[in-house]
């Protein structure tokens, strides 16, 4: 059953990423150069729609929070995020969209993926010496969220928190609408 869901949701996700232009390096670099914000609008809307519906589902009890999973916050998130941003900007691919682009028949995406396997492999080898250093220092108590979920320490622990999350989601959709198509 898990495998069927993996194929189903994975294929839908890859299909959607291709159809919004996220697997097209020209669209990614255009977004980062602020000359084509179409993808930025789409990402804002995507997070907004999923977050608003998720929290409405949690409030009404339609969605079971049991499958939520919060990632830890530690120093490495900042530095790793910066490195990912660097590689993303020079290549126009991130891990997921690189694979989707590979599926569309791009040779540069195949080379990106091979580079990615080498980078992940080096990290795997280096992990033993990074473990326990300042890079792994937990911040905000680790698994922290803004709003209470069943799986985290919330920064705002109020009964109306989930409604605020719905509000944040709707705000992101409004931002998506208001963002211009390009800034430069």
């Amino acid at each position: 059953m898990d495998i069927i869901l993996a194929i189903l949701i994975g294929t839908i996700f890859g299909f959607v990423l291709q159809r919004i232009g996220a697997a097209d390096p020209d669209k990614i670099i255009g977004m980062l150069r602020l000359t084509d914000l179409h993808l930025m609008k789409t990402i804002f809307a995507g997070i907004g729609v999923s977050s608003a519906l998720l929290f409405i589902g949690l409030i009404t009890g339609i969605i079971d929070g049991g499958h939520l999973s919060i990632k830890s916050m530690y120093t490495g998130v900042i530095f790793g995020g910066m490195l990912l941003g660097l590689g993303w900007a020079i290549s126009g691919f991130c891990p997921g969209t690189g694979l989707v682009a590979l599926g569309t028949g791009r040779i540069d995406a195949l080379i990106f993926t091979l580079g990615g396997l080498a980078g992940a492999g080096l990290y795997m080898i280096m992990y033993g010496s990074l473990k326990g250093t300042w890079l792994m220092q937990k911040l905000f108590g680790g698994k922290a969220t803004l709003i209470v979920t069943s799986k985290s320490t919330p920064l705002l622990d109020m009964s109306w928190g989930p409604w605020l999350a719905v509000g944040i989601g709707i705000t992101m959709i409004v931002i998506a609408k208001l963002l211009p198509d390009k800034i430069r």
């Binding site: 590689g87 290549s91 891990p95 990290y123």
Partner: peptide
């Protein structure tokens, strides 16, 4: 793209996740 992929995945593993 090879260099980019290398940096992206090394960084993603340090961060414990990527764009998705």
């Amino acid at each position: 793209t090879f260099t980019g992929g290398f940096i992206v995945l090394w960084g993603a593993r340090l961060a414990g996740g990527c764009t998705s």
